[in-house]
């Protein structure tokens, strides 16, 4: 028996606190719900630590109203810490998409899983690019939103940009849009 009867797409983004993982989820959810006029739900979970602890966000996007708000088996798994890779990869859907920052994660350790389940793997050096090209390590999450937008096509570029402008602190819009475009152009 399948777990879903509609075409809900499930995205899970994992990393550690302070990377802006949750904000990236908010932006994707907002882009879908407010600017692409789809349905979306964003949830998050975090430990007691303000910085450095495990951090995770989940986004569901659908053309229909979403009932169960949590990811059951992600179509797309985005990983920004090695701990998150080890914790979440086993749940990834067969032929699902795995996007990682290779400077933070060694995908090699799960190569058997990747081969067996025919996972599409994308390696995007978002942290390095954010640091070198924008001069701000903290926009790595927005670079990653660019990558996700390009690879998954679940949200439109226009909607993603509107959601970024709508979500980031005033005065940082331009830098964040540049970060998005940087990520969008990797693949």
């Amino acid at each position: 028996m399948g777990t879903g009867v509609d075409m809900t797409k499930e995205i899970k983004i994992g990393g550690f606190g302070g990377q802006g993982v949750i904000l990236s989820g908010v932006i994707i959810g907002k882009a879908a719900a407010l600017f692409d006029k789809k349905y979306s739900v964003q949830t998050q979970s975090y430990g007691p630590e303000a910085r450095g602890g495990a951090s995770k966000t989940e986004i569901l996007i659908s053309d229909e109203e979403i009932t169960y708000p949590k990811v059951q088996s992600p179509d797309i798994l985005v990983i920004m810490s090695h701990e998150a890779l080890l914790k979440y990869h086993t749940n990834l859907k067969e032929e699902g998409t795995l996007i990682v920052d290779p400077d933070l994660v060694h995908v090699g350790v799960i190569s058997d899983f990747i081969n067996k389940n025919k996972i599409d793997v994308y390696e995007a050096q978002v942290t390095k690019l954010a640091t070198e090209k924008i001069g701000l390590k903290i926009v790595a999450n927005i670079v990653m939103v660019g990558v996700i937008t390009k690879i998954t096509k679940l949200i439109s570029v226009n909607a993603a940009k509107k959601a970024i402008v709508n979500s980031v602190p005033k005065g940082t819009e331009d830098k964040n849009i540049s970060a998005f475009e940087l990520g969008y152009d990797i693949f």
Binding site: V26, G29, A33, Y39, Q42, Q44
Partner: peptide, 9 residues
């Protein structure tokens, strides 16, 4: 907590 922290339109 689920409803408190969840985001939806």
């Amino acid at each position: 907590e689920v409803i408190g922290h969840m985001r939806e339109r």
